[in-house]
Design a binder for these strands. Structure first.
Length: 434
DNA sequence: TCTGGGGTCCTAGGACCC
DNA sequence: TCTGGGGTCCTAGGACCC
């Protein structure tokens, strides 16, 4: 049956996402956080990446550095947590499994969002969305919002509406509104509230006299394509309710792999930077092996703080390519060192470094002649490291400078890390009995 | 003192090929 | 005087997302 069959309701798209995801995950295992302002911080306890409604009400913004908030936190009663990705990832997986019961078309878009394809009348779909909310709350314990519309872009907007208007009870179905009502809603929203438009594009749209989402919807698609790109043109169509973005599960293998971190303490010696690079290259190679891929190119970088007014911002970058794509940690470490170390200045205060891998393809896709295979590949060193790490923990093995000693001074700061309550037996939540 | 860490897609332009 | 045209592949950089 086709979408035009009068007896078959047209497909609609629902966007389900977890409200204030990381904060909600923290509250699940620490109910004392309920009703209070809470933020979750980025790696290294650097800046705010999630805020409870109460924290938003205090004016705290996404990306605010923690050190600027810390002094006022006690007066505000503001609680903070270091990010616990293992916990969030596990809870996310449970939510996604539950959502799969509601639709055969599911696209997990991020750790806290999924698109679902649904068919039914407007009233049926609104009711189904309420079921979904109740089920996720009951079985996983997390609050979600649901937006329903005829395209992904509109479903996103509906979802924002569901969040902003408490009276909607967490569900907004755009089909329940008249065209005039929808127009009035879109007229009240600036262009950067739409998915795919941020600061730069908003500014350029303003110069063209396009101020609201309604203006963008009414713009000439050909002109938009010429001035911007095919992506923005699709946004115009999507706003008109024409579904242009396929609902497909994204590829399970990444096309680019990056391992990068800010340091708890700056790294200012070449010797220390060499250790950092060695560890990061091995971590990147590990991720590569985990998805059974090999890489052809590597880029490494290190940079000083862009916020330090007393020193100019410095960055170093260097690349390497592997004529025979590889996942071998020894080769990766060697390449990273050769690419970046000549550009590292003794005494510069580096605050961040990273290793990126590109030109990624499935391992074993093209088998090179034996004589071209580096010796380390033949020894299967990468797989050995992976096996040992899996059995005894990732800190138990490392090559060369990665060493196996305790955490070096530059490793991540996580002062308020909650327990990994759902994935580690020794970190289960404790329920006190009276 | 202290400001995240991943990713994606698109476009333009150059090299190279026939 | 007039000096092809189309295709692929690759890279760098921009913009955006969560």
């Amino acid at each position: 049956m086709s979408d035009t069959d009068p007896l078959t309701p047209r497909r609609r798209i629902a966007l389900v996402d977890v409200n204030n995801c990381y904060v909600s995950c923290e509250r699940l295992f620490d109910p004392t956080l309920e009703g209070r302002p809470v933020v979750v911080l980025s790696n290294n306890d650097g800046c705010v990446v999630a805020r409870s409604a109460e924290a938003k009400a205090l004016g705290i913004q996404m990306g605010d550095p923690w050190f600027k908030l810390a002094a006022q936190a006690p007066a505000w009663g503001l609680e903070y947590r270091s990010s616990n990705y293992e916990l969030y990832g596990d809870l996310s997986r449970r939510v996604m499994e539950l959502l799969a019961r509601y639709s055969a078309w599911q696209e997990t878009y991020s750790i806290d969002e999924a698109f679902l394809g649904l068919r039914g009348t407007t009233a049926e779909l609104t009711a189904r969305a309420r079921d979904i909310r109740a089920a996720v709350l009951k079985h996983v314990g997390l609050p979600v919002s649901v937006g329903i519309a005829s395209s992904k872009t509109l479903a996103k907007l509906a979802n924002h509406g569901a969040k902003r208007t408490p009276a909607l009870g967490g569900v907004a179905n755009l089909d329940a509104y008249t065209p005039d009502q929808v127009t009035r809603i879109l007229e009240s929203l600036p262009t950067d509230e739409v998915w795919g438009v941020a600061g730069r594009t908003k500014k350029r749209l303003t110069e063209l006299g396009i101020h609201t989402i309604a203006d963008l919807r009414g713009a000439d698609p050909g002109l938009i394509r010429k001035k911007f790109s095919v992506v923005m043109q699709r946004t115009v169509y999507e706003l008109r309710g024409i579904d242009c973005l396929p609902l497909e599960p994204p590829s399970p293998t990444r096309e680019q792999i990056m391992f990068s971190r800010s340091f708890a303490t700056p790294v200012s010696t070449r010797a220390e930077m060499e250790r950092v690079l060695s560890v990061y290259a091995q971590r990147a190679a590990g991720r590569l092996r985990k998805q059974h891929s090999v890489a052809r190119e590597m880029t490494c970088f290190a940079s000083t703080s862009p916020y330090d007014p007393t020193h100019p911002h410095e960055s170093a970058a260097g690349g390497a390519s592997f004529p025979i794509p590889t996942d071998d940690p020894v080769e990766m470490v060697k390449a990273a060192t050769a690419a970046l170390m000549p550009r590292i200045r003794e005494g510069a205060r580096y605050v961040r470094a990273g290793v990126m891998l590109a030109g990624i393809r499935p391992a074993g896709a093209d088998t090179p002649l034996d004589v071209f295979v580096p010796l380390h590949d033949q020894r299967g060193l990468g797989r050995l490291v992976d096996d040992v790490g899996r059995k005894f923990g990732s800190a138990s093995i490392g090559l060369g400078l990665a060493g196996v000693k305790g955490a070096p001074i530059w490793s991540m700061k996580r002062e308020r890390l909650s327990k990994r309550a759902t994935t580690h037996w020794d970190e289960l939540a404790l329920v006190h009995a009276r």
